[in-house]
């Protein structure tokens, strides 16, 4: 295990590594360099995310549920910003809040006739699902609490460049495979849609 970690370290630190142990931490949201998120902002974001997520899984009107999903995605984008990964935040906005949300809303609208506000929205597991999920949450949080806390501070001056070079050097094979996967998904989706038309 140790050897694997060391190997990964070597692989992942190809560009020049900057070590800034003694940094000055300024509180605030966003910004460019070593700032940490203000707890208040974090809790607001977290409340938004969890609240919207709960609405997604509980709300009766599935269209509202889709809209709440967009809210969750936006909140997660904010979380990424607080984690200093602005590129990921932008990707989240574009792909999740943009493309995937629109896709899902289209799907909801295309299958509009099949649901109604009067029918039940949950299946027979709705009650027993709660303790199981709660137990799961309990276990996960308990194990998270055993984790030593680490501050959130930037390590890379120019993170996007570093990610880019990692993608094109270390992860070039997964990167290419992902493109094939997307192509396959595209063709698969078309095939599924077309087949049902004929049937």
């Amino acid at each position: 295990m140790n050897k694997m970690l060391i190997l990964m370290n070597i692989l992942l630190t190809l560009p020049k590594r900057v070590n800034r142990q003694n940094q000055e931490y300024r509180f605030g949201f966003g910004g460019i360099s070593e700032r940490m998120i203000h707890p208040f902002v974090f809790y607001v974001l977290a409340t938004l995310i969890v609240g919207f997520a709960l609405l997604v899984v509980t709300v009766r009107n599935i269209f509202h549920s889709g809209l709440c999903l967009i809210g969750t995605f936006l909140g997660v984008a904010g979380i990424y910003v607080s984690l200093h990964n602005y590129f990921l935040a932008a990707t989240q906005l574009l792909i999740y809040s943009g493309a995937i949300a629109v896709l899902i809303l289209f799907g909801i609208m295309m299958t509009q006739r099949s649901w109604s506000l009067t029918s039940r929205t949950h299946n027979s597991l709705w009650l027993i699902g709660i303790p199981v999920s709660a137990m799961m949450a309990f276990l996960m949080i308990r194990s998270a609490l055993t984790l030593p806390d680490s501050p959130i501070k930037t390590v890379w001056e120019n993170l996007l460049q570093a990610i880019g070079s990692v993608l094109m050097q270390v992860y070039v094979l997964p990167f290419e495979i992902i493109s094939v996967v997307l192509l396959v998904a595209l063709i698969g989706a078309m095939a599924l849609g077309k087949e049902s038309e004929e049937a």
Binding site: I49, V50, A53, M136, L147, S150
Partner: peptide, 20 residues
């Protein structure tokens, strides 16, 4: 100070809600 653990707990909540 908001550290890694806060984020991990948030993610756990989000995961469990999705699971439910």
């Amino acid at each position: 100070m908001i550290g890694v653990v806060h984020y991990v707990i948030l993610s756990a909540l989000l995961f469990v809600i999705g699971l439910y």
